[in-house]
Design a protein around this nucleic acid. Structure first.
Length: 219
DNA sequence: ACCCAGGGTCATA
DNA sequence: TATGACCATGGG
């Protein structure tokens, strides 16, 4: 099976996913930070708190004291860390001239700029690039590694950039496709057995790839 | 009473 | 460069 065949099967099975869950560029960026190593259901509560407090805007978020911001995003976990990361991200956006200005940046400049922000790593940057700014980058997350790795389509131990380059080279740079593919992998990613212990079928079936490491190897 | 989730940073060796 | 500790809540 090729990557493209895998995509079409998932697409036919589950149809359009309408990702990212979030209405504005700002909300997508906030969600990308809040969902770091965190279940989305917890992120939803945090975002609901921000909305209820009228804090989901550039100005409000930047004006909010760090401890108050942390209190609002508390359900998302790591709230002290994430409050600082959100602050750093919004200050960077603001210094760059806002979302409007960033929209005019090249893919490369935008990506390296995001990666320079404290608390924004490759996956968070690519979430923002693909879903907020509609740039053709393929997001590599735990689900992508686990599922495509078990299919034998990729080597899940490869570093982030190398893996992304391989997948992007195999697929055409197609924003709607990258969007829908990653959405399908994540939205239905829990519907497979866990890496450890492996499910009964994996144990019985010869050729079922061994457990996929949850922890990513460095570049 | 565990295990895990749509990561990233920092300190060690 | 490669591991490990740490961050923290909520659901299964």
């Amino acid at each position: 099976m090729t990557l493209l065949e895998a995509y079409h099967r998932l697409d036919e099975a589950w149809g359009p996913q309408h990702w990212w869950p979030g209405e504005s560029v700002l909300e997508i960026m906030v969600g990308a930070v809040l969902t770091q190593n965190t279940a989305w259901s917890n992120v939803e509560r945090a975002i609901a708190n921000l909305k209820a407090a009228g804090a989901l805007s550039m100005q409000a978020l930047l004006a909010l004291p760090l401890d108050e911001l942390a209190a609002l995003i508390r359900p998302a976990g790591y709230f002290n860390v994430k409050a600082r990361r959100l602050r750093a991200l919004l200050e960077w956006v603001s210094a760059a001239g806002g979302v409007e200005a960033l929209s005019g940046w090249t893919d490369e400049k935008l990506r390296s700029g995001l990666l320079g922000v404290h608390g924004v790593g490759p996956e968070t940057a690519d979430d923002i690039l693909l879903y907020a700014f509609e740039r053709p980058v393929f997001v590599i997350d735990a689900y992508t590694r686990r599922i495509l790795g078990r299919l034998g389509l990729i080597d899940p131990t490869m570093g982030y950039e190398h893996l992304r380059a391989m997948i992007e080279a195999e697929l055409s740079p197609d924003v709607p496709l990258f969007n829908q593919f990653h959405a399908l992998l994540v939205a239905h990613g829990k519907a497979i057995c866990r890496p450890r212990p492996r499910c009964t079928v994996c144990v019985l079936r010869e050729g079922c790839p061994a457990a996929t490491p949850t922890r990513l190897p460095p570049e």
